[in-house]
Design a protein around this nucleic acid. Structure first.
Lengths: 125, 125
DNA sequence: TTAACATATCATAATATTGTGATATGAAAA
DNA sequence: TTTTCATATCACAATATTATGATATGTTAA
């Protein structure tokens, strides 16, 4: 901030903010996660981006349920629910437990409920 | 729960768990939010479901940035970044402030950062 | 065994989303 | 003014996702 005050030039191909352009980029880049983690995280959040799946999650946040209860509660056909449950399973968002010919589904962990609730808070405010 | 204990029949088209099927459905349904809120919430989460947008959010969680800094940090072309910023804006996830010919972007509120971080925690565990 | 039931998988048409080239806008410098 | 720069909008081909009909699997009851 003292010496080299002739650095505030070179704005012919870049925007200049209040700090050196390069500085900002380096500082922010240093905090980034891996490319693959961004992809994985995006895949994870994508699951929350569908009303049907969100409904299923909101039910499971109340109590564990079997597939047919989910169908009946949401008035959706079984194929639709099973398909979405498969996606939820594949993304480690719900788990299930076989009970005879039934499958009882539940949320994988508390993160799921937290994300759901913070999101809801956000849109309601 | 006392009278009418002949209700535990009719399982010819429904699965039966441990409780009356109807009971479960009513109990869970009572906790549901409005149809439109599910849609709105899904729209909101959908925004997190794209690696480019997630990268932008992760940068803005570190510090406020102008469009060109985002482009340079992520090595993405300006159209792509502007397009995603428009989506982020439209969904109330980022806000911006004009500073001369620049636009300085920031996260709308703490919810955004919280959701990002809880999601990251989830996939890292 | 067979039948009935709960759930899962597959295939697909309808629909939505992506990144990006072309182009527009608007502010400051020349 | 004209030019340059930062950013925004539009249009669209490529790609992904949706719900669901058809069908398969696996479990229990008859």
């Amino acid at each position: 901030m003292s010496e080299n005050n002739n650095l505030e030039n070179n704005n012919d191909d870049m925007c200049e903010v209040f700090n050196s352009h390069e500085d900002v980029i380096e500082r922010v880049q240093a905090r980034m996660i891996e490319e693959e983690q961004y992809s994985e995280l995006a895949e994870f959040f994508k699951i929350f981006g569908n009303p049907t799946r969100l409904k299923i999650l909101s039910l499971l946040a109340v109590e564990d349920l079997c597939v047919c209860d989910i169908c009946d509660t949401l008035n959706l056909n079984q194929t639709t629910v099973s398909n979405q449950l498969r996606i939820l399973r594949a993304n480690n968002i719900v788990k299930y437990q076989k009970e005879g010919k039934m499958a009882r589904y539940s949320l994988t962990d508390l993160h799921i409920e937290m994300i759901y609730k913070i999101g809801l808070e956000h849109i309601l405010e």
